[in-house]
Structures are given as structure tokens and as C-alpha cells.
Design a protein around this nucleic acid. Sequence first.
DNA 1: CTGAAAGCGCTTACAG
DNA 2: CTGAAAGCGCTTACAG
Lengths: 344, 344
Amino acid sequence: MATIDDVAKAAGVSKGTVSSVFSKKRPISKQVTERVLNVAKDMGYFPNHVARSLAIKKTMIVGLKMPISKSSNLSGFEIQMINGVTKECSQQGYRVLLDTLPEHDDPTQFSMDPVDGVIMLNPRKQDPRIERFKQMGIPLVLVGRPDPEDETVSFVDNDNRQVGFMVGDYLLKQGHSSILFLNSAADMTVAVDRESGLAEAFQAHGALWQQNHVLNYSRKLHKSPVEYGYMAMMEAYKQLKYTAVIADTDRVALGVLRAARELGIEVPADLSVIALSNDATLAQEVTPRLTSVELEVETLGSEAARILLEMMGNPDVVCNRIVEGKLVFRDSCQINSTMNEMGE
Amino acid sequence: MATIDDVAKAAGVSKGTVSSVFSKKRPISKQVTERVLNVAKDMGYFPNHVARSLAIKKTMIVGLKMPISKSSNLSGFEIQMINGVTKECSQQGYRVLLDTLPEHDDPTQFSMDPVDGVIMLNPRKQDPRIERFKQMGIPLVLVGRPDPEDETVSFVDNDNRQVGFMVGDYLLKQGHSSILFLNSAADMTVAVDRESGLAEAFQAHGALWQQNHVLNYSRKLHKSPVEYGYMAMMEAYKQLKYTAVIADTDRVALGVLRAARELGIEVPADLSVIALSNDATLAQEVTPRLTSVELEVETLGSEAARILLEMMGNPDVVCNRIVEGKLVFRDSCQINSTMNEMGE
DNA sequence: CTGAAAGCGCTTACAG
DNA sequence: CTGAAAGCGCTTACAG
């Protein structure tokens, strides 16, 4: 590849001039511009983004950190995140570096990535990466709340207790008492928050909260969310004839629906199913259409990007955004006749 | 941020030594290593990826070029691509730079991106970018065949004529004659290829091929694929009581299904629907489950990545991979009694 | 095992 | 409007 030096020599000008022709940061006469451009074209010269980045300390790239387990697919959540983040970033001329690599624990391997800021999914408790980004001076926004709380870090999140409470409250109002909760993996803060929200709802209704009615997803046991929903439903229903189930995601709900079909359970007549939805299309197009709490993951993503982009301009802003879940009534829940003031 | 220079000075060693401690490219004594590591930790030093990339001319990043129209979401196809590419790349320690930025036409804006190779979606006719990557000496693999043909460029693709032929052949064998094809945008080579494959099938069956039975998606008219399927079906059915429709994607098929419900058309009894599927989950979980041609977009993506990674090791390999579509029988097509030797 | 120095390909004050 | 030179933060022969 031709370099700026080659072009400068061939065109009989200095590197600075060639640089300016391409960056337009200072005016260059029309004749020189043309000459340089022609030479550049002939030589097949293209400015080197890496070298430029080093010089100006800016890459116009946003990092999206979402480690995926070896060889597993992106989840619906992750996909919606990519959607949201990408949309916002590309509107502002940024590209997205998808970092799905698992974390190394060799401190020698950490490096300052070629990004101007990063969005990090699923922060863990005491996540050491948060401190690291601070040290590097790279703007960071978390998707999911930091644990422990940290006033100095930006994040976006659903209000997961509210989500848990809302579905519980709704179902209890409908007269359900035996409610199965197919929750996400136990080690995630979302799982904890949603469960405690649900428990609160039971308490508010003076209903008996039974912890053994909540199951957790496990990468080991379940090969896919759909499988999880299916298996869990098949098993749990043997123990107890639940009248309602809360599914962690749309795909989990699909599994539940399938199990119900096999078991000859009518949805919603015999069983109400409600999904914590991360994929609105799916929820809407399945039969029966899923009543759901819309998590608006995509909004989460675009908000995260928006905040990050702002931080990149103004280094010391910190900003949080809580996105409320919205209950959307469709066809998979039995609607009690006393409830009718609501529509989709 | 501390630099390698700061650390070197503070630790009383040369930059080369610090470099070696982090890169492990040459042995450094245990004592020195420890001292350097401690100093680095204290100072919050992290090697600068950009500087390193410039020096070694390698970024460990793969570019995925898929321009999206302003503010529109990623399509199912794109998402599956990301899935496939990401999976393969992360297994080999590469990250993916998602480039959704629209192409500039100002030659002054092209630059050599911080990537070791690129995968490019939807190459256009005479796509100038192909030549550009050649000039830059950046390994390239296309998703979709180059037009005109070019022996020197690697690509992966479905066999879209075969796909068109296969569904046509199947439907015609089932006795259908009025077949509506909801094709993708007219300017895409896939649309052309699939249509010609379909026409071939008609010819092979001695059936009358009527071009006005194929409609094309248009970003202007249709706000989403589902809408496209719905609107197109509603309109077309007024003209002719089609007995079968081929939908460009699962989502388009969903729209068709919705229209059919509204029109009181029974699927598959009155209408057979077949989708050219880019999202197997969707196809399987909708009711009725969609009979489809599985395009295996994810395979396309992982193959593209595999080939690219290989090219990055060995610059002058060129490699193509054609992924055949597979007909998967589910519930949205009326199965003719004479056909029964097939299952999913 | 370690250091000094040149080099990777740009940008940007400073001078004119 | 243009040039000469220092600098961005690393790596890597070359020498010892």
C-alpha cells in the first residue's frame, strides 16, 4: 500500500499538504489538490485509519462488549441491543466494534481498545472492568445497574423489580394463585430483581409467596431458551396444575406454548402465559399472540449509545436512564371480566 | 493515560523491555517482569491497541460491511449474518467491526479501515468497493456473488436460482398454478436469480409463467417486511384468488398469514404459503408453522468468516462456497396426497 | 536477558 | 497556501 509519503514525493509536495487534501483541515489550492488527488488515485493510496487514529487519538468507533459463551448464538436480548446501539451510532457517524471475546484474566492481556467509548452488557458484581475503563479514561455506559451502586458510572436499565411486580400484580388481580415463574439464570441481577418484585406483588395481595414456583435457566441443563420453556413446563406441570406462567423471554414462552399444546392445555383458557419480551415481533406474531411486558431492549441500546456519545463530547457527565416495562395485552392471558379498561 | 514510556522510566528499564513484558515476545527475567507489572498496575497502564496495530500492521479485527438505510433496523438476514460471522470470529480471537455506515461518494473519505479483512454484504453491480479493497491489499469475501463474475474474489452465496426453482417445482407438483411471488427489492441480484429460477420451474412443467405474479419489495411503499406481506397479499388477492404464495422472508410470510386470516382464507387448505427463510425460529414457531426453504444465512456468515480468516493467513487463496437451500416441510403448505415420502 | 534507535503512517503547531 | 519537523505509543531488528 502506498503511504502518504509516497504520494507526497510523487506529487512533489509535503506530507502535510497531502494530509490536508484528504482531511480538508486547512485549505489547499485547487491545482495542488487536484494533482495530489490524481497521484493518490494512480498509486491506489488510501489514508491509513490506524495511523490517523493514533495521531488524533480518536477512532470514531464505539465498543460493544458482550461476551458470549463459546459457540453459542447471540440471544434475542443481544440482538435487540445491537439494533439499538447500531442505529444510534451510525446516525452519528460511529461504527460499532462487537467484542464478544471472553474476558481474559491475565492482566497482561488487557489493552486500551481502538474505541472512543464502550457499552458493556451484564456487568457483574464488583466488576473489575469498570475500574479499568475509568483508569483508561474511556467513557463507559453499562447496560444493567452497577453492583454495588456507583454514582460515578452511567448506565441504562429496565426497572426489573417493577417488571416483576407488574406481572405479578396483574396475574394476581386476574385471580391466579398458582403462578410459575420461568426466570433467567440465577446469577444475574435481573433474575434477582424480578423475583423480588414478584414476591412483593404477592405480599401486596396478601398471597402466599412460594419460592419453589420459580425456576432458573441454566446453560448446562437447557440447550436453548425454547427448550428451557418446554422442559420446565413439562416438568413443573406434573407437580402442580399452574394456571399462569411468566416466561423470561419470548422464546421461553414459545417453549411453554409448545408444551401446553402437547399436554392439551388450552391457552389462555386453562393457562395464562405472559412473556417478559425482548423481541416484539415474535410476541406479536405467535399464535396466540403473547401478552407481554415489553422491555424495549432496543430503546435501552439506543439510549446507551446516546448517553455514551454525549459523554464522549463532555467527559464528566454521568447519566442514568431507567426504561419502564410496559404491559401489553394480547391473547395469551385470560382476561377477567372485571378488567376491561385496557387495550394494547 | 500512562504510556509505555512512563512505565519504562518509572521502572528504570527500556520501552522495549516493557513491551516484551506485555507481549511476551521475548523472555524477560522474573524480577524485571514483576517490577514492570507492578509499576504498570500502579500507574494504571494499559498498552494502546491502536499504537500496537500501527507497529505490527495487524488489528485482529474483521470488518463486516452492511450499510443500513438511515434509522432502519437490521433485517433478519443481517442478524443471522452477524450471528454466523461473530461466532466464527470470536472462536479465532477476532472481533467484528460492524460497519453500517452508508457509502460516501467523496473519494477523499475512503480510508484503510482498522481491520485485517472484510466481509461485505450485498455487493452491487460493478461494485467499486471490490477494486478498492484489492488496492488496499485487504482480504475480502463477499456475501452474494460478484457481478460481473470475477475469478479473483472470494464469496459465499445461496444458489438462488436453485432456491427459486425448488419452490416453484414443489408448488407446481402440488398442482398449484396461480402462484404469487412476493420477491425482494427489484435491484438485488437475489431477486433476479430467484425469479429466473422460478420461471425455469414453470417452463420445466410446461406451465405458463406470468411475470405479473411477482411483486417486489420497495422501501418506499412498505414500512416493514410484515407490512409488505400483508399489503401485497391484500391487494393481489383482489385480482386473483391465488392458491399459493412464496414469501421472500419469514416476516413477509407473517404478513401474508395475517392477511389470510382477515380475508378468511384457510392456510393451508385454501392457500399454501412457503417462506424463503432467514430465521428458522420464526418459521418454526408461528402457527401454522411455515413450510420453508432454509437459506442457512448463519452458515453463510460463518463460512464467509472462515474463508476470510484463511485468506488472512494465506493472501492468495480465493474460495467460493455455495450453500444450497433446503426445503423443510411444515404446516403451511397443503400436501398433495401423492406426495408423502418426505418429512421434516 | 536488556537497551538504543529506527520505524509504523499519520497530524499539527510553528514558520514563512 | 505550503513545508519541515516533532509527536502519537507501540515493536523490532541489531548489538551487547
